[in-house]
Amino acid sequence: MIPIRSVVVSSVLLSKIEGEFKILLMKRVKGGFWCHVAGKVELDETASQAILREIREETNIQPKHLFSADYIEQFYEASLNVIEMIPAFVAICQDEQTVVLNKEHTEYRWCSLPEAKALVVFSNQRKLYDFVWENFVENKPEPLLQIY
């Protein structure tokens, strides 16, 4: 048996940089790979409260709007022998959003969709970015997905 675990949330952050939507990617200290915001849900937190806390902790950003992405990231974590199920969110940030990284990351970039997909190493990240781009940039998001 392989347990299914859901203790982490994630968010793709979008900002208009020089008039074009971009995705925020950060390079993690641990592992040295590029990623979007993610972190564990703490006791007595909802998923949306947890992702807002993680966004604030990792980037010092307060998004203008937060949406459920209507997407679950999933992968097998071999070290724990679990299938991770991670609810994804989309955070719409101020235009030309500034970023203040915490100690978990060494650098950041606001990326076009092709740039973001070229930087990340995991296929599920690329699938998530394609999904977010199609449903939140190229098309207007479904209002029922908006959290605030």
Rank of each mutant, 00 (worst) to 15 (best):
A78C: 03
V8Y: 03
A118K: 13
H65S: 07
A78S: 13
Y76H: 06
R5V: 12
P143R: 08
Q94G: 05
A88G: 04
V132A: 00
L80K: 14
W110M: 07
I17P: 10
R126F: 03
N102G: 00
P3R: 13
P114T: 10
R126A: 13
N124I: 10
E104A: 07
A38F: 12
L113T: 11
I51K: 01
L52T: 00
K64A: 06
M1R: 12
I72N: 11
T46W: 01
E138D: 14
Y129L: 14
Q49M: 09
V82K: 12
S123C: 05
A78I: 08
C93M: 09
F75S: 09
K117P: 00
V82G: 04
V137W: 03
Y108E: 00
N139S: 15
R28Q: 12
L119D: 00
V29F: 04
S123G: 08
A38C: 12
G31D: 03
Q125T: 06
L43S: 14
K27L: 06
N81G: 11
V90H: 10
V9T: 02
T59V: 05
M85D: 02
A78G: 06
L101V: 03
Q62L: 08
E96N: 15
Q49P: 01
N139M: 13
E54I: 14
L25V: 02
I92S: 04
A91V: 02
S112A: 12
K127A: 15
L43E: 15
A38L: 13
P141M: 06
T106L: 07
G32F: 06
R53Q: 13
Y76S: 00
G19H: 13
E73K: 05
V7R: 08
R53L: 09
E73G: 01
P87E: 11
S123P: 04
L101I: 04
L128Y: 08
Q74F: 07
N60L: 11
V37C: 02
D130V: 10
R28I: 01
N124E: 15
V121S: 13
I17H: 09
V100H: 11
E18D: 13
A47D: 13
G31C: 02
D70K: 09
K117V: 01
K64L: 14
V82D: 05
K22Q: 14
L66H: 07
E42T: 15
R109W: 01
K40R: 15
L80E: 13
Q62G: 03
Q74P: 04
Y108L: 04
L52D: 02
E57F: 07
E84P: 02
W34A: 00
C35M: 07
F136W: 00
E54N: 14
V82Y: 11
T59L: 03
S11D: 12
M1Q: 09
V90F: 12
R56Y: 10
E138K: 15
V100T: 14
I51V: 05
M1L: 11
H105E: 07
T98M: 12
G39M: 10
E134Q: 15
L13Q: 12
V29H: 03
L119N: 03
W34K: 02
G32Q: 08
I51R: 02
A88S: 15
K140E: 14
E115V: 00
Q74D: 10
E20S: 12
T106Y: 04
Q94L: 13
G32W: 07
E96Q: 15
R126H: 06
P143D: 07
D130H: 06
